[in-house]
Design a protein around this nucleic acid. Structure first.
Lengths: 352, 352
DNA sequence: TTGATTTATTGGAACGTTCCATTTAATAAG
DNA sequence: CTTATTAAATGGAACGTTCCAATAAATCAA
């Protein structure tokens, strides 16, 4: 209401009877000022209701402490987890990261990136939107802003990447299905404009071939990466001449959709059709039946991404090594007769 | 890599053979400059790889276009939905909101608010963390920054609030349970340091009294507002001498927990124990059994909050009217014999 | 042709900080 | 008692914009 003109360090200086420079020093916690003076100044800061103007400071300092995270879908708990992991690290480093959502929209992403750059971010952690064009991050590179990709990568980009081991995860899951005796397999959901898709599909294919199944017999159906997509995939597959008996799904959301569609047709997930998900979101454990899924530790990947970012900023580089995170197949009850229910298979999925 | 010193409007001016003022005018899209000149300048902007420095600009303009949203729990899809609703509105207004997560931690919230203020935000939409002290927003008020509370309110605060009609929602849900013939009711989850809790509990109590049930017979168990809390509540209640036969849950997460715990005891949610949730998150519809819940349209509330914020900024005020959003009871199958499955009861819950 | 008006462009001060170079005050060394 | 040394505080320039007042160029009226 009252809102008198914003207080500046000059107001503080007058109030405390010192110079603006002294105030500045106190604000930065410099040891050069006499403790009593510092106390006096700090009191004045309180009294005048001062708010530090970081914009003005950055004008001189030329390096802010703001880090942005650009997330492609905030409503997916999987990405929200990623964000939370990053925050944990930044918090302990005294950094407040700003999150922006692109809602899987490359145009929006462009706006978001522009805005963050204008704000003078020190670095950016990005899970790029589907359909991102290769040039979208050129401006960032030119400006020399450190960028890390998390969970997703772009084809032919030099930007460091933190992702789970998608290939291995898909391999483990597929081997598990084959080990259960399934011979007609399907891969449901996702689309080929995502690098992740190719990685996971690659693991699926390799497992098929290694374990004696002709990959050309496998059914591959692209689709949306959500429940609806999963339902559609299942319907399509059951309309085939020789329908599959098991499916590896692009992610858990797709798997939930598949199970939903099975129920709707009077089929029991697990007994009548085996389903494996990917990501192992919290819901997977509580679903009916509990979903077998590839756990990727998204919060851990978020932490790792944050650490890499901090390193990059400190060493003033825009390059860093990629990091491929370990995955586990978490076996639950969505793949038929529960021989080893609720056991955690760590790095072994029956690839014998 | 190369990263030559950041280009400024002076560099553009030199490149285009005009003055810095002209460049500034072009950047602001002023109609005062000759179109050909504008084209020339815009080309120079591209050529030098210029990045607008909003911090410097704000130094003069004294009003940024940055809006912050402070969310208490980003992993709850309910709050993520709220964020998405807000973003929709801001996007069409050309504003990029920055989201920050407080993880339900008042200390973290303090840091976040401080950081956002230092960044010079034009306004703040906040879903306050549980346990927020009344003074937490004093600095914002002093600085005259517009603030809107969303989903949650603080006791005795003058800050405008956008919330669902918690009292009515709880009333409708409770009346529904009573209409089904239940007489021993429970209210599960939440805690009394949340204003929302009192609102929902108030609706519950009013329904009991109005519809002929002594509210003192009702069982009220506080607890965490997540699955775990729900499980604990159910266990506690079943240990009572005369256990309840139905429960209104503080939110859907609690309701999911209750259903989980029922199953674990071999009881069937719906048939053996009626459960109603609150919020109607997307999972509610797909759960087994589908959860009857109070829909609050969180995305819509987010949009509303964003609109109010934009109005406040334009009219340079820090006051605005509260907004209480309508709620619907969405009846599904978690409350016993499904007399009217999948019907949407709009504003009427059987309060006759 | 001259002056008035409109249209485009420009220089300079200001915004709130940081940081360097300086000054002043206090202390130590000779 | 000087003079060198250290500690504490300060003034001024700079950061990259915006915006006002001023100028220059073009158009119009008389």
């Amino acid at each position: 209401m009252a809102s008198r003109a914003k207080a500046t360090i000059f107001d503080i200086a007058r109030e405390a009877g010192v110079s603006k420079s002294t105030v500045s020093l106190v604000l930065q916690g410099s040891g050069l000022i006499r403790p009593e003076t510092a106390v006096k100044v700090r009191k004045a800061i309180e009294d005048v209701g001062y708010v530090y103007n970081r914009g003005a400071a950055n004008l001189r300092k030329a390096h802010s402490n703001v880090i942005g995270m650009v997330i492609n879908d905030l409503t997916n708990p999987f990405f929200a987890e990623l964000a939370v992991g990053m925050e944990r690290v930044f918090q302990s480093a005294g950094i407040v990261p700003f999150i922006a959502n692109t809602a899987e929209n490359p145009v929006r992403q462009e706006e978001v990136l522009k805005s963050l750059m204008e704000q003078g971010v020190a670095g950016l952690i990005v899970s790029p939107a589907r359909g991102t064009t290769p040039g979208a991050f050129r401006r960032l590179e030119i400006a020399g802003v450190p960028v890390v990709f998390a969970m997703r990568r772009l084809p032919e980009s030099r930007i460091p990447v933190i992702t789970p081991d998608n290939h291995r995860g898909a391999y483990l899951a597929t081997a598990h299905l084959i080990g259960k005796g399934h011979r007609r397999l399907a891969f449901f959901g996702g689309s080929s404009d995502l690098v992740v898709y190719h990685e996971r599909l690659g693991g699926f294919r390799e497992a098929c071939e290694t374990l004696g199944i002709d990959a050309r017999d496998a059914l591959i159906i692209e689709g949306e990466t959500n429940r609806k997509g999963g339902m559609a995939c299942l319907e399509t597959s059951l309309a085939m001449a020789e329908p599959p008996t098991a499916a590896l799904c692009f992610n858990d959301a797709v798997a939930f959709g598949v199970m939903l569609a099975l129920r709707k047709r009077g089929l029991e997930p697990g007994a009548d059709f085996a389903v494996v998900g990917f990501d192992d979101v919290v819901e997977a454990e509580h679903y009916m039946p509990p979903l077998t899924s590839v756990a990727v530790d998204s919060a851990g990947l978020g932490e790792r991404a944050a650490h890499v970012m901090i390193k990059m900023i400190q060493s003033r580089t825009t390059r860093a090594e990629d990091h491929i995170g370990a995955v586990n197949l978490v076996v639950r009850e969505s793949c038929g007769p529960d021989r080893r229910t609720r056991a955690r298979a760590m790095g072994t999925g029956g690839a014998a």
